[in-house]
Design a protein around this nucleic acid. Structure first.
Length: 442
DNA sequence: TCGGCTCACACTTTTGAATTGC
DNA sequence: AGCAATTCAAAAGTGTGAGCCG
């Protein structure tokens, strides 16, 4: 168990499936969001190195606006349609293995396969709520538990990867993205065959069912649709060239199998090779700020009544740490009306006497996977407990927070960093002067 | 009229309980 | 009795296109 003095100096985070991400990024990644929740593809998967094997960490993901714009698909390309809408209640997804030892996280890739996106602002399933036609950037947060008994969570570090920026959509706009997804996503296997991933040809296939009730008649035994589909899938079974997932699993290869990638570390960031990176509207040179950060208290759920920053630049300045930027602020605090999604709440009576940074009144929404990780899920919804997962605090109390991001009990010896990782060249790590979670949990 | 969203659909993959074998 | 491997059904996840809605 190391001291918190320099626990972060050698952490390296690699984005897995980076080649795939870059393929999508080159075209302009689109992520389908649905009311019921849709998984990401490519999925968020990272490799972590440099953790202390016997220290415990939480790893979580949130999605922040990539800019302050709303987009529209016009003439085969994305164009700005205006300013972004007020952001919905933001949820941070905690990896179901959290908290776990550093050795556990480093043993294999950290896969956020259960992470789901939704456009349902009233979602209660813990899915990450996004607006369609907006661009978002996934962020990965690693939070260290200071002692092995889970007294508290403290230091945090944030990693982002420019190629993971995507456009949230309810229906694919770019046919190239559609094709790429079909080619790489096993669940879309049925659409891979030529003709089935083409809207017009698909319509032709179902012509006998055309008409106002066409949807219903597709299941009609007399309809040629299902039969043909079956045949085509049989053909496909032997000719499927991609098989990126299914083949892997059937071959008995661990799903978490890793492919080597690049590392991004704070040290590298100091070099600030920003020129190697695809220009990002949010990258406004803040990588130059290589200052140690104030202490980072525990992650909490922070609802905010503040609207999200309307401009990328503004948001960027806050990135990485405070509740407003990390998890996003919701125009309205969910939960007060009883419609809140599953959130990590802080325990009643355990509120610390910390203060929020000035514009950050609110409460985090923290989603946890549906996976049977009792430690993470159970505690979150249960009574106060001395576990780091049980940050339950009455939502209504969060708005009473004001002010500082330095909880007194953490002290200055605990530093935190927000790191912006770039895939290009040697990589870039960005240090933010803001703590990830400015509130202690107890 | 138009663009965005929802839904049911057919299909594949994944998951996990039940069963079997050692 | 305990464990690992296998089987199988159910659940989850996928893109599509028609229809709905503002």
């Amino acid at each position: 168990m190391g001291t918190p003095a320099e626990p972060w100096g050698h952490i390296r985070v690699t984005l897995d499936d980076q080649v795939l991400w870059q393929k999508f990024h080159q075209i302009g990644t689109e992520m389908i969001i649905t009311k019921a929740g849709r998984r990401m593809f490519p999925q968020c998967k990272i490799s972590v190195l440099g953790l202390m094997p016997f220290s415990r960490y939480m790893i979580m993901v949130d999605l922040v606006p990539a800019d302050g714009m709303r987009y529209k698909w016009y003439k085969h390309q994305w164009g700005v349609a205006g300013k972004s809408e007020p952001q919905p209640p933001c949820v941070t997804y905690i990896h179901p293995d959290s908290p776990a030892l550093g050795s556990h996280w480093m043993k294999q890739a950290v896969h956020f396969r259960k992470l789901k996106l939704t456009n349902n602002t009233l979602d209660q399933s813990g899915h990450i709520i996004l607006h369609s036609m907006h661009r978002y950037q996934p962020r990965f947060h690693i939070i260290q538990e200071e002692n092995p008994f889970g007294v508290r969570w403290s230091i945090s570090q944030t990693f982002t990867f420019p190629e993971t920026v995507f456009m949230a959509v309810t229906a694919y706009q770019n046919e190239k993205i559609t094709k790429l997804k079909i080619d790489h996503n096993p669940f879309a296997k049925g659409f891979r065959e030529v003709g089935l991933n083409n809207k017009r040809q698909r319509v032709t296939r179902n012509q006998p069912c055309q008409g106002p009730d066409a949807k219903r008649t597709r299941t009609d035994p007399g309809s040629p649709g299902p039969q043909q589909s079956h045949d085509h899938n049989q053909d496909q079974a032997g000719t499927d060239a991609g098989k990126p997932f299914g083949e892997e699993s059937k071959a008995g290869i661990p799903r978490e199998k890793e492919s080597p990638g690049r590392w991004y570390s704070p040290e590298v960031k100091q070099e600030c090779p920003g020129s190697e990176v695809t220009p990002d509207p949010r990258d406004d040179g803040s990588c130059a700020s290589g200052q140690p950060l104030p202490s980072t208290p525990l992650p909490l759920l922070l609802y905010s009544n503040e609207p999200w920053p309307s401009s990328g630049a503004e948001f960027r300045g806050r990135a990485g740490c405070d509740p407003g930027s990390l998890l996003g602020s919701s125009p309205r605090r969910p939960g007060l009306d009883g419609k809140a999604g599953p959130v990590l709440e802080t325990a009643a009576g355990s509120l610390p006497t910390c203060r929020l940074s000035q514009d950050l009144a609110g409460v985090f929404n923290v989603a946890v996977s549906s996976a049977p990780k009792v430690g993470a899920v159970g505690c979150i919804y249960s009574h106060p407990a001395p576990s780091p997962a049980s940050w339950n605090v009455p939502r209504q109390q969060f708005n009473e927070f004001t002010g500082a991001a330095h909880p007194p009990h953490l002290g200055a010896e605990v530093s935190s960093q927000a790191v912006h990782s770039y895939p290009a060249g040697a990589g870039v790590v960005e240090w933010s002067p803001y703590p990830l979670f400015p509130y202690p949990c107890w």
